[in-house]
Simulated assay, not measured.
Amino acid sequence: MMKCYDCMEDGNDTEATCVCIACGKGLCSDHCKELELPVTVGQPPNVQRLPKGLPRILCKYCFDQTIEDGFD
């Protein structure tokens, strides 16, 4: 099983539950952040934003380096 990279740095042995989409680190649920990527459908000028976006998982470091406004 894959182990959480951030937990290993802290000296803990925790199984990873997800992978950061930016850097590929295995992460446990305590060390990940979820962003919702907006989804739109249609062709201009009739473009609609869907009410629910696609979930994207990032580690805290990559999350801090990401411009959050692009995901809101």
Rank of each mutant, 00 (worst) to 15 (best):
residue 28 C to N: 04
residue 6 D to E: 12
residue 14 T to Q: 13
residue 47 V to D: 00
residue 65 Q to N: 12
residue 49 R to I: 14
residue 54 L to V: 15
residue 71 F to R: 02
residue 63 F to R: 03
residue 58 L to P: 08
residue 19 V to N: 04
residue 31 H to R: 01
residue 61 Y to W: 09
residue 70 G to Q: 05
residue 7 C to R: 00
residue 63 F to P: 03
residue 62 C to M: 08
residue 40 T to F: 11
residue 46 N to P: 04
residue 18 C to F: 09
residue 47 V to F: 01
residue 46 N to F: 15
residue 51 P to S: 10
residue 44 P to Q: 09
residue 14 T to L: 09
residue 20 C to Q: 02
residue 58 L to R: 01
residue 14 T to C: 12
residue 26 G to N: 12
residue 29 S to Q: 11
residue 34 E to K: 13
residue 30 D to I: 06
residue 47 V to P: 02
residue 53 G to P: 08
residue 58 L to Y: 15
residue 7 C to W: 00
residue 63 F to C: 04
residue 50 L to P: 09
residue 23 C to Q: 01
residue 63 F to I: 01
residue 17 T to W: 07
residue 65 Q to W: 06
residue 31 H to Y: 01
residue 27 L to P: 03
residue 72 D to Y: 09
residue 56 R to C: 07
residue 47 V to I: 14
residue 57 I to E: 03
residue 15 E to T: 11
residue 28 C to K: 01
residue 9 E to C: 05
residue 34 E to G: 04
residue 42 G to P: 00
residue 65 Q to C: 07
residue 12 N to L: 15
residue 25 K to V: 11
residue 48 Q to C: 06
residue 53 G to K: 13
residue 23 C to K: 02
residue 12 N to G: 08
residue 47 V to A: 04
residue 43 Q to S: 14
residue 12 N to K: 15
residue 60 K to F: 02
residue 59 C to I: 03
residue 20 C to E: 00
residue 1 M to D: 12
residue 34 E to T: 14
residue 18 C to Y: 03
residue 7 C to T: 01
residue 3 K to R: 15
residue 17 T to H: 08
residue 33 K to T: 04
residue 37 L to W: 10
residue 17 T to C: 11
residue 35 L to C: 06
residue 64 D to S: 15
residue 32 C to L: 03
residue 2 M to C: 03
residue 16 A to S: 14
residue 28 C to I: 03
residue 24 G to S: 05
residue 47 V to H: 00
residue 26 G to Y: 06
residue 3 K to Y: 09
residue 44 P to K: 01
residue 56 R to E: 10
residue 71 F to Y: 13
residue 69 D to N: 13
residue 41 V to Y: 08
residue 18 C to A: 14
residue 62 C to D: 12
residue 30 D to R: 15
residue 23 C to F: 01
residue 9 E to R: 08
residue 62 C to Q: 02
residue 58 L to C: 02
residue 17 T to K: 13
residue 3 K to I: 03
residue 46 N to E: 13
residue 53 G to S: 12
residue 65 Q to D: 11
residue 7 C to Y: 02
residue 1 M to P: 13
residue 70 G to F: 03
residue 11 G to Y: 01
residue 19 V to A: 08
residue 54 L to A: 15
residue 29 S to V: 06
residue 64 D to R: 06
residue 6 D to Q: 00
residue 64 D to P: 02
residue 38 P to V: 08
residue 19 V to Y: 05
residue 1 M to W: 15
residue 34 E to D: 10
residue 11 G to D: 01
residue 60 K to Q: 07
residue 39 V to Y: 05
residue 10 D to A: 12
residue 3 K to V: 07
